[in-house]
Design a protein around this nucleic acid. Structure first.
Lengths: 206, 206, 206, 206
DNA sequence: AATGAATGAGGATTCATTCAT
DNA sequence: TATGAATGAATCCTCATTCAT
């Protein structure tokens, strides 16, 4: 079925875009990697940029919706919400490192104005949702008076930093360069623990 | 003089590379921006990649040397060293946002193998220097037993996150989109304060 | 059909390469002459060098195979074989002067190492096949003890020399400069006769 | 002195032109090889083509004059003259293989019309001088009625053929590929002997 | 629905040459 | 006399895309 082939192309495309960047990846590369006809790429996605947008839009929405869900949840405490968001980011990033490297690149680059704008706006929405949680915690005297948006930047920034290079992670965990750190559960736990401890110490009274 | 013109080209190139990425920037673009002949670019730097390398190599060394200097300093306490490094990164990033965006992109991308390798190695050196400080603090019982490389990832990651987009920063500080947040001293202080508080709470006993 | 167009391009390319040499011929020239798009050239042949190799490889093989065939033939006498090879070279050179001028140039030039190597090796194979004929003739006392590889050099060298310039040939045969000597049957016969007489006198006992 | 430096440049240029052809050699290459400034090449010789012409014109004249001298000599017999010309060509070619490879290329190529024309005309003059010797020999009944211009083509062609590639010669004389066959005196003698025997058998009555 | 053929625009780079000093 | 700096033109090639089938 066509959807299968599309999905296959998308997965291969994420690999390449994340390794080489948008401009650094040619349609030829993408077609070869996905083992489909070059003309087919345009037939399915309209253009290289179309393919890229399709990838981004479907996947970004998921994270955004989950954060919103957490933010408006009435049964969780604020610190539980913060912890969930930490887990959400770390698990999301480590399970789809290619996609998130791709997003990081696109956030840095202003070339494709529209795409850049969308990503920034989504990030701002996520920040706002996070802020509202923190502010509620502060009002409840559960949290210290912290700089909420920068706390969010710390969480996302730390996870992103780990994503930058497998090699760096392997140095951290003492493996050789061919090891796949992102698939290592104990590394994931270590990262989550670090961020939680950090944020808790910063956030919680006492 | 030739050095002046070279320096001029380099500065304009950083702007473009940081906005559009390496592949996204053409030699034509670079030449136009610097208002020099296209052939001139190759005359001075050999190739587009040559220009890029020249930019990176000269500037990366500075940061690396400063961190090393701090690490081996005998008169500073460990927490003073950590604070200095935080200041060093924030000030470095905010004073040369274009250059550091460029570096971030290049760390994400593995296309230019050599360049990528160099950046990663430099980052690992910096991490090691930072680790040695933390470990000394731990041995002296000044610091809690923390995950030193991830602490470093947090510092750099937070600063990088802020660098991702002016627009995000302007939302944080309540300015419109044309404001230059990286030149705003109070924003810089706010960022330094955030990271220091965060790290202190995480690191210090009591 | 695609093969037709490819063949058309190849024929036009031989004309240009033989007139101007490999470096002296630009892809633009080739595309104009063949009346196709510049990008088309690379689409079909990968590169200028790819086109060149394709031309050389297909045509060189023909001559080499024919000589080998003659060498191993069991019904012909040695002098008949030598005569056939003389005819083969003269007829081959005069019927495809452009191609053989091209080959001559490439044998002189060491710039494209691979191509050069291939041509030399083919020539050595041909020489060896020729040598084996001569040596057999010598053993049978049909031939004098001659310097076989240099005899071959004389045959090929004489034919090549004639190929160097139409103008020279026209002086030989008393025509003006626009005449096409290579298509003149009596000139071909004259050349064959000359080489045969020369070689016979040198080779045959009595 | 300037003449020395010019001479030095010319010698290095012959090496490169003979290896890579005229178009295949850049002014940069030439300047590097001769270890002089790039601008200097144009300063001395006006242009790349100017350098090339200067090389050709000075050296071609020498051979032409020598042949003419032999042709008009009154004390030598015709067969002595033919032998002298054979020696002249073989020695000339083997002592300056680079230069003569260069000339061969230029004779094959019609790109630089003027240069090509000059070479052809010189060759025709040489042929005519050779013809006059042969015809005189025929009138004197010393020589058979041979095809004089093709006899000349055979002499020059055989020598040229040997010049085509060192590697081929080394196969003939059983040396490895790094040997310098053109400097080997016994190879030179072998070549002269071959051509003389060949031409004598063809030319002389009985 | 799918694809081989085709192409205009633009990519980086190298060219021979000129100019100011 | 000699040369580093500079450049317009041309190099080969790859790009994303379109089109006819």
């Amino acid at each position: 079925m066509a959807t299968d082939k599309k999905q296959h192309i998308i997965e291969k495309a994420i690999e390449l875009f994340s390794e080489k960047g948008f401009e650094g990846t040619s349609i030829r590369d993408l077609a070869n990697k996905a083992e489909v006809n070059i003309a087919m790429m345009n037939y399915y996605f309209g253009s290289k940029e179309g393919l890229f947008q399709q990838i981004v839009e479907t996947r970004m929405a998921t994270t955004r919706d989950k954060i919103e869900e957490i933010a408006i949840n009435k049964t969780l405490s604020e610190i539980e919400k913060v912890d969930l968001i930490i887990e959400l980011y770390v698990e999301g990033f480590l399970s789809q490192p290619g996609f998130h490297k791709m997003i990081q690149q696109e956030m840095l680059v202003t070339k494709r104005e529209d795409m850049h704008e969308k990503l920034i706006n989504t990030f701002i929405q996520n920040t706002n949702n996070f802020n509202s949680i923190i502010e509620k915690g502060i009002r409840k005297k559960a949290f210290k008076k912290v700089d909420a948006p920068l706390v969010f930047a710390t969480i996302v920034g730390t996870a992103n930093q780990v994503l930058k290079s497998k090699k760096i992670c392997n140095v951290f965990i003492g493996h050789n360069k061919n090891y796949e750190p992102y698939k290592d559960t104990s590394f994931k736990e270590r990262l989550i623990t670090h961020i939680k401890q950090l944020i808790h110490a910063h956030l919680l009274n006492k």
